[in-house]
């Protein structure tokens, strides 16, 4: 028991050190622009097909499922408003973060842990390159910027899915739909969406890098790290969602 608490505290200390190292490396030159761009491509661009499909389906299905309950009150004309608020405030950031945890988190976890296992990280270190800067900071920056970008895209494609679902039943023009959408969402909703996406993006990048970087040696460590990166990222995303909802409702 005492041993367990001790280990937990040591783990927290290590996480804290990792965070401090990241913060120090991120602000100090030279900046790794080329590698950041490459990671944005790996993390953002390569997630597009998967995220397009998921975003579209979520918007489409959510709209379809919401229709019956609005129909009871004869209020189907509210559908555009309902789905735009639901998508922007909750669905887009969450869906992006969960898909991101699964795809990007496992990728980063596996990459860094296999580099750790095969001593590539040590090799980088002894050849005069700072691995925290080159491998970790770039990935965290890439997820922190790409998850918000993907989130906007998911919101757009989710709304498109919603529109197609509505247009299948009602006679509603594309323009009329989006006019209602923009009436329904306020600037603070967009702000809240970006805030969530940035927090989630950072969480995914930081968590999976940390887990990969400190994975246990041995090849089974790689699979474990990929798995742990996904589980931990998803878990933290939900906890953060809970906190953000509370905080935002306090602020108004």
């Amino acid at each position: 028991m005492k041993r367990k608490i001790e280990n937990l505290l040591l783990e927290f200390a290590r996480i804290h050190r990792f965070m401090m190292r990241f913060l120090r490396e991120v602000v100090s030159p030279p900046y790794e622009f080329k590698e950041i761009i490459r990671q944005c491509y790996e993390i953002g661009w390569k997630s597009f097909p998967l995220i397009s499909l998921t975003g579209f389906i979520v918007g489409f299905v959510f709209t379809k499922q919401s229709r019956p309950s609005l129909e009871e009150f004869g209020a189907t004309s509210w559908l555009p408003k309902l789905i735009s608020i639901a998508i922007v405030r909750a669905l887009a950031p969450l869906v992006t973060a969960l898909i991101g945890s699964g795809k990007v988190g496992s990728q980063i976890g596996a990459e860094l842990s296999s580099m750790n296992v095969t001593e590539q990280i040590d090799a980088m270190e002894v050849s005069g390159t700072n691995p925290t800067k080159f491998l970790v900071s770039t990935r965290i920056l890439a997820t922190t910027t790409m998850i918000p970008v993907l989130c906007f895209y998911v919101a757009g494609i989710g709304l498109l899915g919603g529109y197609l679902s509505i247009a299948g039943k009602d006679d509603l023009s594309f323009l009329a739909f989006f006019t209602q959408v923009f009436e329904a969402i306020a600037a603070k909703d967009i702000f809240a969406m970006v805030l969530r996406a940035v927090v989630f993006g950072f969480t995914i990048g930081f968590t999976s890098s940390y887990i990969g970087y400190y994975s246990s040696k041995g090849t089974e460590g790689v699979g474990k790290a990929a798995n742990a990166a996904v589980v931990a990222s998803m878990f933290l995303v939900f906890i953060e969602e809970l906190l953000i909802v509370q905080i935002l409702s306090l602020v108004g």
Binding site: T118, Q120, D122, A123, S127
Partner: peptide, 15 residues
């Protein structure tokens, strides 16, 4: 470290 070369047990090439 630029003056020290380290050849790793399992080569450690960036794969």
């Amino acid at each position: 470290r630029q003056r020290i070369g380290f050849s790793f047990q399992n080569s450690a090439l960036y794969d």
